[in-house]
């Protein structure tokens, strides 16, 4: 009541002060992002050249590159996307379109919410115990891809559910009225209309997975690899090989962590260069997702 007894002029001044304070905090937060990116680019500038992308890690900082790291990251992302997207979309369809309101559905929903809050390193321990030792997958690309797939599953499920929920009920009812089965309604109408939202969720999920370091350190990613995994394409029938799934690997964030934690400042430059590329990739993916969401909101107005 104290402020209320003051004059209107004074109270209005507090309003303006708060606006200024709010803007300052916002600008400070965003300045961090800008400062971080420019610092990475500036510090890493000396190493940001094509050679950096085509060389293996090396003990000599000036010759070290991220070839094995970006190839490893790409292959892991391929596995992650191939597992997380179908499973996540199917789970979301189950929860939104099929699930009856019973205890089982409630348990699934609680688990999805809860998994989103589990620290990523716990997923690493799960993968170490389950994938690496129990299933005998070893410290392989497959184990890493599956780990990150479990990690981003809640993100894909939540995004897909939101997209499905945004499709109005009238669309479903119209399809049912024409004699479509529940699966036909879902597959021919609801899912195609929510594709944009599903895609956005997938990109956000993968951008999270691409920067995750802790879980793949835990399962035993190597930070010094001077060879590439078995190529997925072969010269003879059946032209595709899945041997790379079992290969040991390194990844972008692992490589960066390795360089950051070395005392030699020359490696700090490499870390900055790798960081600039990694940050550039995540910002690009997030930007794409944001743009997509924005466009969808304009295209679909039910």
């Amino acid at each position: 009541m104290l402020a209320a007894s003051g004059g209107v002029v004074r109270r209005k001044r507090f309003d303006r002060l708060f606006v200024v304070l709010g803007m300052l905090v916002l600008i400070a937060a965003l300045a961090v992002l800008l400062a971080l990116f420019t610092d990475l680019v500036r510090q890493g500038a000396a190493r940001l050249n094509p050679d950096f992308l085509t060389s293996f890690a090396s003990r000599r900082p000036a010759q070290a590159g991220i070839l094995a790291a970006w190839v490893g990251t790409s292959l892991i992302m391929l596995v992650t996307a191939c597992v997380a997207v179908p499973v996540g979309v199917a789970a979301a369809i189950h929860l939104e379109e099929y699930a009856p309101k019973n205890w089982l559905t409630a348990i699934i929903e609680i688990n999805v919410t809860n998994l989103a809050g589990v620290p990523s390193i716990i997923y690493g321990l799960l993968a170490l115990g389950l994938f690496v030792y129990e299933f005998g997958l070893g410290q392989s690309i497959l184990a890493a891809g599956l780990t990150l797939a479990l990690l981003i599953l809640p993100i894909v499920i939540v995004a897909t559910r939101e997209a499905l929920r945004a499709v109005p009920r009238t669309i479903r009812e119209a399809a049912y009225a024409l004699g479509a089965t529940r699966w036909e309604v879902t597959a021919h109408h609801v899912l195609p209309y929510s594709m944009g939202g599903v895609l956005t969720g997938m990109i956000i999920g993968l951008s999270r997975a691409i920067g995750e370091t802790a879980p793949i350190i835990t399962i035993g990613a190597l930070s010094f690899i001077a060879f590439l995994p078995t190529p997925p394409f072969t010269g003879e029938f059946p032209f595709l090989s899945f041997a790379w799934l079992g290969d040991p690997f390194t990844a972008m964030p692992i490589q960066m962590f390795n360089w950051v934690s070395r005392p030699d400042p020359a490696f700090r430059v490499n870390a900055a260069a790798a960081g600039a590329i990694l940050l550039g990739m995540t910002l690009l993916m997030n930007g794409l997702a944001i743009w997509l969401r924005h466009r969808l909101r304009k295209t679909f107005q039910w």
């Binding site: 965003l30 691409i210 995750e212 960066m256 950051v260 990694l278 910002l283 997030n286 944001i290």
Partner: peptide, 24 residues
């Protein structure tokens, strides 16, 4: 404008934040 920008701040890989803490 601000909400997507904040979203980006939250999307920065944690190892990059580690570098930020140690080097800056």
């Amino acid at each position: 404008v601000v909400k997507p920008a904040l979203e980006m701040l939250g999307a920065v890989p944690t190892v990059v934040y580690g570098y930020f803490a140690l080097a800056i």
